[in-house]
Design a protein around this nucleic acid. Structure first.
Lengths: 347, 347
DNA sequence: CGCTATAAATGGAACGTTCCAATAAATCAA
DNA sequence: TTGATTTATTGGAACGTTCCATTTATAGCG
């Protein structure tokens, strides 16, 4: 149907008997064109199977409409939800974001960012990979392309961050465990090369201090932020001289791992050991036992990040305010009933 | 540091005291350039903070190196795994694929495809949204851009498909249930607007027929392919006059929903009701009880799809052979022990 | 030396758009 | 009618790259 060489606006112009400028105007929906002419042109466009060449257009316009989303781990449903939240906003604005995965690999991230920049993105929303070097975004900053960090931040950067209130979430969760009567607590998973880790751990420590849990009664086990990592954490903890009876996990994936390891030892989460997760992914509710977790409104943060980005592009600035999202503790089954009252109930 | 207007190849040429052509050659790693000259140019590139303009280049080259991956549901870990498999291959080939999500919405899919085409993609790997109209890809086909379908196919298209052997997987799973002693079987979830549905249901029906399960002993409940859909399916089934004792689910998400609904009724999967899933996502293994499921090697199919795409681009063809991936049944806990022998064991 | 062969570097046209300035056509005022 | 105003349309230059055809420099050979 269509000829081998791809059609351009010149072909359309010839077909419709107008000039290329007219075609261009029609393409942009300009009101300067007489309606009948526009119809004629649109018909020609249809006939020749024309596809718009955005690359050529950007050469002149200097302002593209593509936005890149750089995600550190697409297989983690948490980040997938984040991406979906952003997409909702961008869709409404009529722009299609391109998602790229870095698989938590800084080198891959570098490639991905380079490629996106070469493609001429108007802005970048990034959840940086673990181990990202401080200067990784300098090039992009000096190029004047707006960036927003989502969920994660870099040690000392000026790039705006949209993230949940990790500190407060950890405080909430830890207080809950202590009120349930636990006196020997652990913090499982994560590693100190992540700023988020310090925020969450900081909340844990603060709550411990406030509610009188001594340093000797706290156990901190670093580990991979995955199910596997969670399993390892539990093993380490149970091998301790005086093992903890409850743990706040760095995220839900770690918590799921902990619960799995408990089951393998014929222990039950919520009965023999209390576990609280972080992020409240959709699975948390559907797990058995259902996981108590800190809800961070992932999709909402994604939407917020997208809005901030849109505003930055519109106002041609590279600066914006940080946004800290509210968190809440969703209590389910995985930390069991109140231990204080349970003492009397026990056989 | 960098000037406001973005640097071009001409700026570099001036900076390095060579011609733009030389810079272009260096950028492409041509061996025609004297090493010292190349070094000089590369330094200039670094100094001015140059970013390559791929759009301008494609204007001449007519062959871009971007590949689009269009995924119907990113929040389903199954598709995320697929995407990751593809990425592995593309990364090795030094190209960055852009992922776009259609959220199972044909209209959105249309937008996404249009945008990708305008961006000048070299090829498209698509897992089409449910309800995609037959002609949705005609434009792209006539434009000569290679397409590969992954996991899903369209009713009567000539586009190559990389998908698991759905029919065989369903046969395997159904036979397993029947051999365990189940005589009243159900097929849960999915809907007939999906070709995959017919393939899987077809395998189920064939195994039933072969092993002597009469039509009156089979129950087919269509439903959303999600946890929620699975829950609804179970409720419908248990309300029947003679409810089934086992179900093959359209996919793992449905199976998880069924297990959740069982738990809410204080029934236990594998004891009171047998459930088998499809896809074998990573969670299947970690569920409680662990889910028996048909493994389809998701990431492997992703890699295969990527390879096929690479070959199509390289050989400038728009045709390729279909590929049907091997499947296997992974038996875990969710369909319980053998019912035939269990009869004697029962209290 | 001159001549050819090879290596290295270069100028210019082309790619498909946008947008400004200019033109052409239609309408209006007097 | 004429000139001014508005409405539609158009040609041409520019965007940043590639690549062909040339030019210039370097070396090889008798």
């Amino acid at each position: 149907m269509a000829s081998r060489a791809k059609a351009t606006i010149l072909d359309i112009a010839r077909e419709a008997g107008v000039s290329k400028s007219t075609v261009s105007l029609v393409l942009q929906g300009s009101g300067l064109i007489r309606p009948e002419t526009a119809v004629k042109v649109r018909k020609a466009i249809e006939d020749v199977g024309y596809v718009y060449n955005r690359g050529a257009a950007n050469l002149r316009k200097a302002h593209s409409n593509v936005i890149g989303m750089v995600i550190n781990d697409l297989t983690n449903p948490f980040f997938a939800e984040l991406a979906v939240g952003m997409e909702r906003v961008f869709q409404a604005a009529g722009i299609v974001p391109f998602i790229a995965n870095t698989a938590e690999n800084p080198v891959r991230q570098e490639e991905v960012l380079k490629s996106l920049m070469e493609q001429g993105v108007a802005g970048l929303i990034v959840s940086p990979a673990r181990g990202t070097t401080p200067g990784a975004f300098r090039r992009i900053e000096t190029a004047g392309v707006p960036i927003v960090f989502a969920m994660r931040r870099l040690p000392d950067s000026r790039i705006p961050v949209i993230a949940p209130d990790n500190h407060r979430g950890a405080v909430l969760a830890t207080e809950h465990l202590i009120r349930r009567g636990h006196r020997r607590l652990a913090f499982f998973g994560g590693s100190s090369d992540l700023v988020v880790y310090h925020e969450r751990l900081g909340g844990f420590l603060e709550a411990c201090k406030t509610l009188g849990i001594s340093a000797s009664d706290r156990l901190i086990v670093e580990g991979e932020t995955s199910r596997k990592g969670g399993m390892a954490c539990l093993e380490t903890a149970l091998a301790a001289a005086e093992p903890p009876t409850a743990a706040l996990c760095f995220n839900d994936a770690v918590a799921f791992g902990v619960m799995l390891a408990l089951r393998r030892r014929n222990l039950e989460a919520g009965v023999d050991f209390a576990v609280v997760g972080f992020d409240d992914v959709t699975e948390a509710e559907h797990y058995s036992p259902a996981l108590t977790s800190v809800a961070v409104d992932t999709a909402g943060l994604g939407e917020r990040a997208a809005h901030v980005m849109l505003k930055m592009i519109q106002s041609r600035t590279t600066r914006a305010e940080d946004h800290t999202g509210a968190v809440s503790l969703v209590v389910r089954e995985s930390c069991g009933p109140d231990r204080n009252s349970q003492v009397g109930d026990a056989a």
